[in-house]
Design a protein around this nucleic acid. Sequence first.
DNA 1: AAATCGAGAGACAACGTTGTCTTGCAGTAG
DNA 2: CTACTGCAAGACAACGTTGTCTCTCGATTT
Lengths: 334, 334
Amino acid sequence: MTPGRPTMNDVARTAGVSLKTVSRVVNGETTVDPALVAKVRAAVDSLHYRPHLGASMLRRNDRRTATIGLLLEDVGNPFSAVLHRAVEDEARPRGLHVLTGSLDEDPDRERELTRACARRHTDGLILAPAGPDQSYLARELPPDIPVVFVDRPAAGFAADTVLAGNGAGATEAVRHLIAYGHRRIAFLGDLARIATARQRLRGYLAVLDEGGLPPAVVGGLHDSSAAEAATVDLLRRPEPPTALFTGQNLITVGAVRALRRLGLRHSVALVGFDDFPLADLLEPGVTVIAQDPAAMGRAAARALFERMDGLTAEPREIRIATTLIPRGSGEIAG
Amino acid sequence: MTPGRPTMNDVARTAGVSLKTVSRVVNGETTVDPALVAKVRAAVDSLHYRPHLGASMLRRNDRRTATIGLLLEDVGNPFSAVLHRAVEDEARPRGLHVLTGSLDEDPDRERELTRACARRHTDGLILAPAGPDQSYLARELPPDIPVVFVDRPAAGFAADTVLAGNGAGATEAVRHLIAYGHRRIAFLGDLARIATARQRLRGYLAVLDEGGLPPAVVGGLHDSSAAEAATVDLLRRPEPPTALFTGQNLITVGAVRALRRLGLRHSVALVGFDDFPLADLLEPGVTVIAQDPAAMGRAAARALFERMDGLTAEPREIRIATTLIPRGSGEIAG
DNA sequence: AAATCGAGAGACAACGTTGTCTTGCAGTAG
DNA sequence: CTACTGCAAGACAACGTTGTCTCTCGATTT
């Protein structure tokens, strides 16, 4: 018995059979004498033998690692975390395991992590693109491993893409505020290089344009405190907006803090993009355009599995609808 | 050129050198003629060759997959998500990637996923135990892959363990309420089979006992709506408690909803175990015993890496202190 | 009873890579 | 001019497993 982890050879020796017979038993082939099966099983148990997935996958014809890559903006934020969980739930019944990574808006990290997946021969990849261009994927990834983009559109590489209805959601938010009588509606948005932020901004601008209303945009906000400062700033201007549309979770929270600080939470209306826990328990409750990250994860996983199963249709774009949830802050009249 | 992904052999052929020379170049060995290095590099680029980590690891002496397993309660909940992110941040500079899984309090799933890690030969494993007994690990995992437990203690298997100060945190919470004049303090806790829930309960009971105060315990609560119902129930009893100590995130939220529904949020005190986003924005702000999941993840990852680097000291128990954050709800006088 | 068949079991090669050993060749010393 | 050294580069085996082929042996067929 060699030191280290036992191999099939060790099992074969203890069971007194050939290596190949052990392989057959381990893989559940039916053409083995029950007596030998029992001997092999006993040897496996006594040695605590576990098959080596890497070696097996090297030799097998299908070359599956039973692992998929999932690269998101930040596995620690609630949106990504819920999406991650949904992917895992879809992967589980197929016996797939998930290798995760956070990109932090960094295109270099995106390439680095996709490369890590390629070297590990994951069976598929779900990616929320961070960089402006994904054409490198054609070189980086072998052609047989399918990709699905999620949350953000990709450029330079055609693949299934799962997106929230960003434009439609923004449109609905602004229309909602207009319906409550607002005419001066400001938009507080994330960094312009983020595709979803641009889509939301476009939705906002389109509705204002349609109604002949003046836009007021503050962009480049990426965290709660910057958003808070920007909101305070905005509301201290002459002719301040009577309603705010915030383009993202953390911005919404920053705006809530600012309104509270200025004592305006019951007089300035607010609709936020993306729901967050406890939004209903604030005073007033925060009206939001809710995305459905779990549905996005499920859709992305399902699309990926279809491709892994050999589907070769044209790349699809799957929209997951948003929902306006009125809770009070968006129903303050203008 | 064979179909499928290019191999070292393909690169060797295109570069007109031997297989082994390609291997040397790819691995950055210095004993290669610069002219040949250039030819190999060119061939690698033109073929988009990527080394096969599985094959490489099979042959190498150190047998490292550059992958660690991370098995948590639910990667979608904020506590696990933040911990996950902290582990990833520690793993990144070492070139390690993270394979994740959610256990959902299911011991079978715990075994299944640890086995999946063993078959993949992860270099290490961080585990938040779900089941009551981890002695199976000695059989399931080869002896050379280190394990670190996080968030919950393990039984039947000795390894480094990173825990929050559950007992100490609970003690502090209850003392805080007593200091504000409360004598009837109720505890609302999670399922008794969860070790951290038991520790928090013990901390609560110890302080009450010490002060000769009567305990009032509702256990077995695992989600927000059950907690809400239980809280309403509790407060409608004759001689209801004047203060609540909630043993977990979702229970705290349930209690907040119940207090609000009964119009008691400014008269019944509340301290919750575990912080949650926006707790400061509620009315009143929710006083909590904050855990530090990021610190727990960092500590677990560091401990694991020390073991992977060969540390053989006795198993250590690392406590990550909790912090009481007063925000209003816990400072209502009794 | 001889020939045929089938099924179970082993021998052997191969997957893509790296460790080790050998070869070839230029440069140096005797 | 021969023998030796040193170093780059190739040949070959091996990692742990599975695909394919071959062999044996008992059962069935003629």
